[in-house]
């Protein structure tokens, strides 16, 4: 555990909590892509199946349970409790265009051809692109609530911090996981455009709106 890894995890946790609280307090999931949230629930489910097979640490186990629990709670709020506020007309990204190729790639490029390992690989690849329905939705509506941008910023920063964690681990532990690194780079790149808008607009007190 190093400082990049820990702050990355905390940033990830902050993102998840910000989104849950935003929906809960406003009693609305307007502007939130339910499809991205279903993909994240799928990511955590397929990645954390090792909760059933191996114990790494209390930290590891509790964070996994919190992440996966919050992911399902978010999906429940969007598709059940506050379904009336869900903006399905703007959430039109075709997720099969992500899930099918990612599934195929997980079968082809993995560390070990075993069910758990393929599902873990699938989750790593899927996570890297799971935010696309949300970004697509924002590009369609042309705007995002400020609290939604805080969520996206924390979620983007988390994987960027993991990149520094992997550099650290490579130098000090000789640890190196090509699958996670390449997917993490892709994931972080997808946020770059958003980071630019967040820093130049939201941090200066302006609402995030895109030119028509």
């Amino acid at each position: 555990m190093n400082v990049f890894r820990l702050t990355g995890d905390l940033s990830h946790l902050a993102a998840i909590i910000i989104l849950l609280l935003k929906i809960w307090k406003s009693r609305s999931c307007a502007g939130i892509s339910g499809k991205s949230q279903i993909l994240f629930a799928l990511v955590f489910t397929t990645r954390y199946l090792d909760l059933l097979t191996s114990f790494i640490s209390l930290y590891n186990t509790s964070m996994k349970i919190i992440y996966v629990g919050c992911a399902y709670a978010t999906v429940y709020l969007i598709y059940a409790k506050f379904r009336a506020t869900y903006d399905g007309n703007h959430d039109t990204f075709r997720v099969e265009f992500l899930v099918v190729p990612v599934g195929g790639l997980a079968f082809l490029v993995n560390h070990d051809f075993s069910p758990l390992e393929i599902l873990w690989t699938f989750s790593i690849y899927l996570e890297s692109v799971a935010i696309l329905p949300q970004l697509f939705m924002i590009s369609k509506t042309g705007e995002a609530e400020t609290i939604t941008t805080h969520y996206l910023f924390c979620l983007g920063v988390y994987r960027a911090l993991y990149l520094f964690n992997w550099i650290w681990r490579f130098y000090f532990e000789g640890f190196f996981d090509m699958i996670a690194i390449v997917a993490g780079v892709v994931q972080t790149i997808l946020y770059c455009d958003f980071f630019y808008l967040y820093i130049t607009k939201v941090l200066k007190g302006k609402k995030l709106s895109l030119p028509a």
């Binding site: 890894r5 990830h12 590891n60 560390h111 996670a180």
Partner: peptide
């Protein structure tokens, strides 16, 4: 491919 490594990361 190389062998699977234990997953201590989240």
């Amino acid at each position: 491919d190389d062998d699977a490594v234990p997953k201590d990361e989240l």
